[in-house]
Design a protein around this nucleic acid. Structure first.
Lengths: 228, 228
DNA sequence: CCGATAATTTAGTCTTACCTAAATTATTAT
DNA sequence: ATAATAATTTAGGTAAGACTAAATTATCGG
């Protein structure tokens, strides 16, 4: 999160707790504060309030971190659905490129109605992924399953298809777009350097050497071939 | 304005001052408070701040009411442009009817970027009027001129074309839509009752008797015919 | 196990913007 | 003109939600 013009909303809290919590463990005050670009002490205050609201949106124990209750998770998925539908809409109907849409969607996601959400979804044909390949929670607020691995986990001779790119940095996204490393694209690992964890991949007729700053953000579906 | 969920933004203040000020006189604290659905005392406080900000967005003297400075007017026209473009977009691309769009646009108008504004305008072919016939301020934030009269000012034998309907009430708008009293439609005054100010109009093959609650909200362009 | 360091929480302050009630100013009718 | 009424402003209170600094609790290497 870059810089803050106003105070983070409850929805912002929930969204970031959802993301930070994807690893299975509760989110720390510090990490949340970094994401929201406010001070850890302020997070503690807000979290304590969210935890004792009724219905409680988060579960919280001192020094143990925060996680979402079922209603908190619903609210988080709602915002994420908004965000991803909006990004898809901006790209498909107004000619935005995938690196330009994040900030705009970030502001719109909080104010669109359920009615508008559904109309946008319908107009787009109820898409299941946004322009980055991220899954869009369903109307019923279920997050679809997905079986992907970070590109960084692959080794020479493995083949894979890019499913999603989890990044918001505009420059990085533009760069990947220029290289053609976008969802749907097929690639093969041709080399791995244990020293710096660089991967060399072959993509169409081109070869790229990618550092872990990139390979940890590209998630692929492994194609079980050339395994005999 | 119906009910308030959050605190009115500066943009809300400016937009309503703009509207209330269209009659040439400054807006009163009371009227503003009613529009914003907060108490007059709260308006005074906020107004005093806006007046001494730099650059000042409003001009203000105790007990004399508020008006917009040039920069305040620019900011107001910006929001109004957003609002009207959004309403047009909702109607034209997502199948909303003109009575459904107000509340949604009211929330979106504050968060869209100039970039998105221009893309929406371009995608719609840079429209000059919104679905209610209201003029959309230009990209350069000039409000186009218009020469219309309220329907209530017409008298029998006059002919006119509906240009805009200045109302947000959903029921009223739906009603007018059902009757076919929408921008572009031609009508003729056939009767006037000085007692209750009701007008009878002929519109196509139908006759309607309209009270002043309606006739003051429909603005028309008078056709100089049948005047001999 | 224990001290050093890092992470987190508490306590207290500040700002914003609402509210109500009281005081003031303006307007209107007699 | 003046009393009654309406409109507006002031004063003081409250609630959020940020901040800093100090206190507390956890974690980790030796």
């Amino acid at each position: 999160m870059k810089e803050r013009t106003s105070t983070p909303s409850t929805q912002d809290y929930l969204k970031h707790i959802y993301e930070l919590t994807q690893n299975g463990r509760p989110a720390s005050t510090n990490d949340l504060a970094r994401e929201l670009d406010i001070k850890p002490a302020s997070v503690t205050g807000k979290i304590q309030k969210l935890a004792k609201d009724k219905p409680a949106l988060v579960e919280y124990q001192k020094h143990q971190g925060v996680s979402l209750t079922p209603s908190g998770k619903k609210a988080a998925l709602e915002v994420i659905r908004h965000h991803r539908l909006l990004e898809t809409w901006l790209v498909q109907t107004l000619g935005y490129s995938w690196d330009e849409v994040h900030a705009e969607a970030e502001r719109l996601e909080h104010v669109i109605s359920e009615d508008l959400e559904r109309r946008i979804a319908a107009a787009l044909g109820n898409p299941t992924r946004d322009p980055h390949g991220e899954l869009i929670p369903t109307d019923g607020l279920k997050m679809p399953n997905e079986d992907t691995t970070p590109l960084s986990a692959l080794r020479p001779n493995q083949n894979a298809t890019i499913r999603r790119v989890s990044a918001q940095d505009e420059n990085l996204l533009r760069h990947l777009n220029d290289l053609g490393l976008v969802p749907g694209v097929r690639l093969e690992i041709t080399d791995f350097s244990p020293f710096d964890n660089n991967l060399t991949i072959k993509c169409g007729t081109q070869y790229f050497v990618l550092g872990s700053n990139i390979t940890t953000k590209i998630f692929v579906e492994v194609v079980n071939s050339s395994r005999r």
